[in-house]
Design a protein around this nucleic acid. Structure first.
Length: 230
DNA sequence: GTCCAGGGCCGTT
DNA sequence: AACGGCCATGGA
């Protein structure tokens, strides 16, 4: 078994600072839309979908002035589906966007500060009760929109955990706990949000460039620690 | 044309 | 707990 800290250090020396959630900053300066809501919408739209497709959907929403809670609630289903069509799975995703928007409107009066002020565990539970929001989407919302110290586990993380000998039990919760326990022993508490963001970004880089479904093992920075062979 | 992407749900084993 | 089918688009 290889230590998480060791993986972090090797990846960091390879990739450097990544700090990552793709967001269009210029748009928010101009329109004063809460970027946290864009991240929430993006987190749902990107479910099993390439970000380039999500971007098209987000641009459609922006250009039509629909990227806010009230507009998502009021827009007719058909029109919403048309706008988010490039991101795929638009029948289910349109429902999910409506649900999260209604949730924020009805329970928090569309006040994001009020929403994220609550206890992290409580927010997570509330999000998971919404049909269409699973653990990764909930945790992405907490980490990237709420700046909460929550480690996001995605399919890349699972793949790397399987191949690298990081862990034998490959379930969402156990992997998340493993990363969080290790990092919170090593880093200062106030830095954890940044570290989780950085680590997840590095995992994505590793998985896209080396630890692919069809892996490029010979150039992988973690080659000598890995049991997996193509 | 084929493969796959930063999931989640539901049903089956 | 783990697995399979399903949902849909666009880029490589």
């Amino acid at each position: 078994m290889i230590k998480i800290q060791k993986v972090y250090n090797i990846l960091y020396s390879k990739f450097g600072d990544l700090e990552w959630w793709p967001i269009d900053k210029k748009y928010h300066i101009k329109n004063s839309t809460d970027p946290r809501f864009e991240i929430i919408i993006g987190a749902i739209l990107t479910q099993n979908t390439a970000w380039s497709n999500v971007e098209k959907a987000l641009i459609n929403l922006k250009e039509n002035g629909k990227l806010d809670i009230k507009s998502i609630i009021e827009i007719p289903d058909l029109e919403l589906k048309k706008l988010i069509k490039p991101s795929g799975f638009f029948n289910q995703k349109s429902k999910r966007l409506k649900k999260i928007s209604k949730f924020l409107f009805e329970k928090y009066k569309s006040d994001m500060d009020l929403f994220f002020k609550k206890d992290t565990k409580k927010i997570r539970e509330d999000l998971l009760e919404i049909n269409g929001i699973g653990p990764e989407t909930a945790d992405s919302i907490l980490l990237y929109a709420g700046n909460k110290p929550v480690f996001v586990v995605d399919s890349y993380t699972k793949r790397i955990c399987k191949r690298l000998p990081i862990k034998t039990e490959i379930t969402y919760d156990s992997i998340q706990k493993h990363f969080e326990n290790n990092f919170s022993n090593v880093f200062d508490k106030k830095d954890l949000t940044k570290i989780y963001n950085q680590m997840h970004a590095m995992i994505v880089e590793l998985a896209k460039n080396y630890c692919k479904k069809n892996p490029d093992c010979k150039n992988c920075p973690l080659k000598k620690y890995c049991k997996y062979e193509k």
